[in-house]
Design a protein around this nucleic acid. Structure first.
Lengths: 192, 192
DNA sequence: GTCTATATACCGATAGAC
DNA sequence: GTCTATCGGTATATAGAC
């Protein structure tokens, strides 16, 4: 009647996710994960046959959670600009955890070295974000809160790029303020 | 009288640089470099004692070349906005080579997994860029080409973040337009 | 300056007992 | 579901001949 101790696979993904955010796909091993979870390396393989399986599953879970967060913003906020500000906060919260990068930002940088399944999951994350942001900017332009000189899809890519890049610059350059300030400054610059 | 065949160390750095731009610090080995250069692994160690030495030297060379490119822009262009457009082109040229990332953008993402010497070199690159961009935006604001609502230092971080992020999003998301379009759209949005 | 050979460690992954 | 033991491969790095 007792199946999985209700959560080992999830704990494995939790640990692997944090390691990817800190060191990247090539920067962690099954042994790292095993030690942090408190089991042995073959036990990790029992839950995820290969490293590609583990990271692809983790990237899909990350994307699903992000999708839920976006849906929650749509429910909680009706003001278009308030939605965009809440979106920035999503990245800020991640970065506030010891300077952790977005999982798919890190994996996107390493895209050339990733298994196909993982690269596909990363592409799905970016597509999800661009679609949501495009709609949000379109609404913000219609409500007169964002200038209409640029196409909404272009503003979406600009926003996503700025936030992903702000994490990289903030971490690599040490002095960078991170996604909170960059997102805030971008929205201020785009105001109608 | 014959010293180094005048260039093996440089060829090693050339190859390692391209591999980092494609796969990251953890994604290439001395053997990869040796094969691409056409020598054996211990010969690479003869020129650079450790991997950290190689990558730190390579990152410093990259920063020096970037510094020269910035100086060349200052000489060739007097118009502040034209200088910013030329800056965008620096990133666009890199990305146009098979979607190569900025060396320090890639290394910045991996910062937590980097030897101290390498991380220091990466931080120097970002600092150089932020300093130059801050001066360029300050001049563009004074000439009336860029809106004055934001501090020049904040616009500098926004621009650098957007360009670094555009490479990550463009590569990871496949559909992304890359730094050329993102930089152009940002400058258009910031116009006075 | 380049080579062969090697030391040592770690990697992802599997076999099979409990 | 977790374990011990291990395979085969590759990593960084060094010793010493040419």
């Amino acid at each position: 009647m007792n199946q999985t101790p209700a959560g080992t696979a999830e704990r494995v993904m939790d640990v692997a996710e944090a390691l990817i955010q800190q060191r990247g796909y090539g920067g962690f091993s099954f042994d790292d994960v095993a030690q942090a979870v408190g089991i042995r390396k073959p036990s990790v393989h029992h839950h995820f046959r290969t490293k590609a399986d583990l990271v692809a599953a983790l990237a899909r879970r990350y994307t699903e959670r992000f999708e839920s967060a976006l849906a929650a913003i749509d429910v909680a906020r009706r003001d278009p600009l308030a939605r965009l500000k809440a979106y920035v906060q999503l990245f800020a919260t991640t970065y506030a955890q010891d300077g952790r990068l977005c999982v798919c930002g890190m994996l996107g940088a390493e895209a050339d070295a990733l298994p196909a399944d993982v690269a596909d999951a990363v592409a799905g994350f970016f597509q999800l974000n661009l679609t949501w942001l495009t709609a949000a900017f379109r609404d913000a332009q219609r409500s007169g809160q964002v200038a209409t000189g640029q196409r909404a899809a272009n503003l979406a890519e600009l926003m996503l790029s700025a936030l992903e890049g702000a994490m990289v610059v903030g971490r690599g350059g040490r002095s960078g303020a991170g996604p909170t300030a960059v997102g805030k400054n971008l929205l201020a610059s785009l105001a109608a």
